[in-house]
Simulated assay, not measured.
Amino acid sequence: MRIFGALAIGGMVLAATAVSVGAADPAPKISNPIIRDKFTADPAPMVVGDTLYLYVGHDVAQRDEMFNMREWMVYSTKDMKRWTDHGPIMNVADFKWAKQDAWASQAIQKNGKVWFYAAVEHDATHPGKAIAVAVADTPTGPFRDAKGSALITNEMTPKGTHSWEDIDPTVMTDDDGTTWIAWGNRQCYIAKLKPNMIELDGPITEITPPHFEEGPWLHKRGKTYYLTYASLDRKTQRDEHVSYATASSPRGPWTPHGLLTGSGKYSFTIHPGIAEFRGQSYLFLHNADLAIDDQRGAIGRRAVTVYPLTYNKDGTMRPVVQTPNAVTMAPPK
């Protein structure tokens, strides 16, 4: 494991944020991008107890490559300023039926296990993108293929317009114990999962909101369901933004609320992930505003960022302004 965002001396870990001697540190600072030694994308936070785990894809594109992603990684934090690198948790080759592309993922805890859903490219037996499911006993793995085959293949969504529509899974367990999975590119789909977490339980429903491009994220606050996603108005926008919609049921109808935030700096893609941690909600994104050695950020070399997320009294989310400057986390309650 590697701890960064901190300085280790004589076995002690000292916060990189300056703190006066004897002073309390009630509001840790976060600087963006939060991971600076690797190119990372598609952030998916999961909170377990006093720890936030952050699952990411690892960009390794060289020169002018578009996307080159072979593995998924996980980081953890207890204070949002010091992050522990737990290394790769899976490689796309661990799914024997997949041939490439460790794309966007999300993990969820249920039934004493951690379930990991991820987008990959299926082999020639089921051409196109597909969604895999893996399982582990702990958030940091080791993970293994839980099904031995794809959970969702391109053939299961025949109304779609292209072979890469079955990507970017997001999972959420409702108050009644039902787990939902949503996914898509240009078309957005949702379905229930069976209690075993490796099979769909019923039909696939299309719930595509306005300007939906990809990267959906499901969460619930009170009685309101939120669908946050990468949006693209192809008539007016060059790069993806983030929009959201709300509903009183996971299958909708969904009410659009427009933009939550703009595009990530220098990046065509963007991917939202939302979590509440220590009394504060956060919006995780990615941009391409990071250089490592002689490699600058690019469409295939992205960097994860995070911002505070707040709600209005009516339940709508306040627009988020992306900034490289330090942001503040609320102290523990």
Rank of each mutant, 00 (worst) to 15 (best):
M1P: 14
A6R: 06
A18C: 05
A18W: 14
A18V: 10
S20P: 02
A23F: 09
A24D: 15
P28S: 13
P33A: 12
F39P: 07
A41T: 14
M46T: 08
V47H: 09
G49F: 11
L54G: 11
Y55V: 08
D59W: 09
Q62N: 13
E65H: 08
M66C: 06
N68W: 12
Y75F: 15
Y75G: 08
Y75L: 14
T77G: 11
D79N: 15
D79R: 11
D85R: 11
H86C: 07
I89C: 06
N91I: 01
V92P: 02
V92W: 10
F95R: 02
K96D: 14
A98T: 12
A98L: 08
D101V: 02
W103L: 09
W103S: 06
A107F: 05
Q109V: 10
K110I: 03
N111H: 15
G112H: 04
K113G: 01
V114M: 02
V114S: 01
A124W: 04
A130Y: 02
A132D: 02
V135K: 00
P139S: 00
G141H: 03
F143G: 00
K147P: 02
M156V: 03
M156F: 03
T157H: 00
I167T: 03
M172Y: 15
M172V: 05
M172F: 15
T173Y: 05
D175C: 00
G177F: 04
W180P: 05
W183G: 01
I190K: 04
A191H: 04
A191T: 04
E199N: 11
L200W: 07
I207E: 04
P216A: 06
H219G: 01
R221T: 08
Y226Q: 03
T228C: 06
E240C: 15
H241S: 11
A245E: 07
T246F: 12
S248F: 07
P250G: 08
T255Q: 14
S263L: 01
H271F: 04
S281R: 09
A288I: 05
D289R: 10
A291W: 11
V304Y: 07
T305M: 15
Y307D: 10
Y311P: 00
Y311G: 00
N325T: 10
A326D: 15
V327P: 11
T328R: 14
T328G: 11
M329Y: 09
A330C: 03
A330R: 14
P332L: 13
